[in-house]
């Protein structure tokens, strides 16, 4: 048990330590986020209005900021898949599979490590939007951090399942693009759920979408009174969904790596 925990810590730290290597990546993502928040979000917020449904004080800009952060957290967590794809090409995965570490430990360690690393990448962006919105409550910020971490771990679990399952750089690239496009657009990242009710398939897809649940939880956490008309479930249900997603997808990644994955065969 103790050995397992030590191995888990080693694998987790292996992923986390890589954060320092990606300074350029982090800078570019931050720059991209600044553009998104200061150009796209500002212009789009002038173009639309959500106050007609009865929000008080909070406009589309504030609503969208949490969506933009959630979309970014999702993309960066999925991006771990590209890294794993590269590790396959370089033979690092085969090396890791040959280590005297149980596969379930390897899977959990990579999922948690990837989740923490992804969250660290997005931490400057989270602080940036909290600063923009003037949020200073430490308890709420701590809850937001923990929920973002749980969400990130879940999405990394999903990315691991996809990359290990496909074992192809091209297919990974394409599928990630499609998943990203569909999940971001069929969610409440850009638009409040009531506006989707005109298209029932979109409405239900958005309601059960992990991105909607994460973005709406952050909105509920900080601006529940202002935005409750747009939030489809109580905050405790939303956070349960996020934790369930995290645990479920991590277990799925663990089972998959333990039972099915072998070295080689990368296309």
């Amino acid at each position: 048990m103790r050995e397992d925990l030590r191995a888990l810590l080693l694998v987790t730290l292996w992923d986390v330590r890589k954060v320092a290597r990606y300074k350029v990546f982090l800078l570019m993502r931050f720059a991209w986020f600044i553009v998104q928040v200061s150009v796209f979000a500002v212009l789009i917020s002038y173009l639309v209005t959500i106050r007609s449904l009865g929000t008080s004080g909070i406009g589309y800009y504030e609503y969208y900021l949490f969506g933009a952060y959630t979309a970014l957290l999702f993309s960066i967590s999925m991006f771990r898949g590209y890294e794993i794809a590269e590790e396959f090409e370089e033979g690092i995965i085969e090396y890791q599979l040959s280590l005297p570490i149980k596969r379930r430990i390897l899977a959990i360690g990579r999922t948690i490590g990837g989740g923490i690393a992804s969250f660290i990448y997005t931490l400057p962006m989270m602080l940036f939007i909290l600063l923009l919105l003037g949020i200073t409550n430490p308890v709420l910020i701590a809850i937001a951090v923990l929920s973002a971490l749980a969400f990130s771990i879940g999405i990394v679990g999903l990315a691991i399942n996809i990359v290990f399952g496909l074992k192809s750089g091209d297919k990974t690239d394409i599928l990630f693009g499609v998943v990203d496009a569909l999940l971001v657009r069929l969610s409440t990242i850009f638009y409040p759920l009531p506006f989707l009710s005109v298209f029932p398939p979109y409405f239900y897809a958005a309601m059960y979408n992990p991105l909607s649940n994460m973005a709406d939880f952050l909105r509920a956490l900080f601006f529940f009174q202002d935005l409750k008309i747009f939030i489809h479930a109580p905050p405790e249900n939303l956070v349960s969904y996020i934790v369930g997603l995290s645990v479920g997808l991590s277990i799925l990644a663990m089972l998959f790596i333990e039972r099915r994955v072998e070295g080689g065969g990368w296309k």
Binding site: Y60, R185, Y191, F195
Partner: peptide, 22 residues
Amino acid sequence: GLITMNLTDLFIFALIFNGIVN
């Protein structure tokens, strides 16, 4: 995959956004 991505912009994003645009 590419076509799906571009079509989602058109037939999901734009269609829904049409409902909230000024």
